[in-house]
Design a protein around this nucleic acid. Structure first.
Lengths: 154, 154
DNA sequence: CACGTTTATATCGTGCACGATGCAAATATA
DNA sequence: TATATTTGCATCGTGCACGATATAAACGTG
């Protein structure tokens, strides 16, 4: 059986999966300097942009579930990057707020995106390609994220 | 501080990361029927195309390390999808061979890629966009995978 | 042929992802 | 206002990913 459909080289999903892993790996040396993992960096990006969000609001922005974010946020609290506190108006909600240490980290994170882009660009890949890649991916994401909710219930 | 660079919406890596997770999730219902995870499915894609490869040869095709594949292959052996055996010429190598059960699964996997593509296509995203997406990603991957070797050594 | 080096694989520890489930606060409905 | 339902978050178990390390086989060099 020689199924063209099943050849690895013809799969669209495998390049996305591999690229995601390789890019996370490319981030690592820069994030290591800040003592962060890639998902932790994503949480900080959200909070730097908008501090004091609830756990649920962060799950919506990152398309992650609470069962991923809860332990992640606890680790970040232990690292003294942020503080978790129950919302007064709604005791179910947990509000995440940056500590001074968490806020200060932003300045050191500023140069990272530019460095990463620099590593991605080659003779073959121009900035224009990257932007188009991003555009297509975002359309894919919005098409797919409609189909799944982000609670951890089936 | 209002850093455009650090806005989540301006990151190229976040869409790749999210798309990868969402696509794996889209595969899940189909792979559940076969009792497979997405990485296990990838291993089978490789073996269906070329049975009897060594662990190292599989790591090269999937850009994964042995410390990821070793336990994964052991689980698949326990599932009776494949067999692991030391190579006779070189006792260091482990040869992976599909069992009858592993080979039979291919027939049930054939319709999966087409179904997935069907879910990705919308008014906004045509087949042409998907193919270009794949092309750019593959160039990114080849650019990045040159920078890292796939052993688990630093 | 001894011995240092490389190569192929495995093990360990940590941190995601995520389905399933639990629980308490808030809300809706009878 | 009791009770059922929904909502927000947490916990648990399993399976990746991956850096660090270990181990044995193969290889290279004197």
């Amino acid at each position: 059986m020689n199924n063209t459909q099943l050849q690895l080289s013809n799969q669209i999903c495998f390049p996305i999966y591999s690229a995601s892993r390789l890019i996370t790996k490319a981030y690592k040396p820069y994030l290591d300097e800040l003592g962060l993992t890639y998902p932790q960096y994503l949480v900080l990006l959200v909070l730097w942009e908008n501090d004091g969000l609830s756990v649920n609001q962060i799950t919506e922005k990152l398309l992650l579930n609470t069962n991923t974010l809860s332990p992640l946020l606890k680790r970040m609290e232990k690292m003294e990057l942020l503080q978790r506190s129950r919302c007064i108006e709604d005791e179910r909600s947990v509000i995440i707020q940056l500590t001074t240490k968490g806020k200060k980290l932003q300045k050191r994170a500023v140069p990272i995106p530019e460095k990463l882009i620099g590593e991605l660009l080659t003779d073959q890949i121009q900035m224009e390609d990257i932007l188009q890649l991003k555009d297509t991916l975002c359309q894919l994401i919005s098409a797919m994220s409609n189909k799944t909710d982000h609670t951890s219930k089936a």
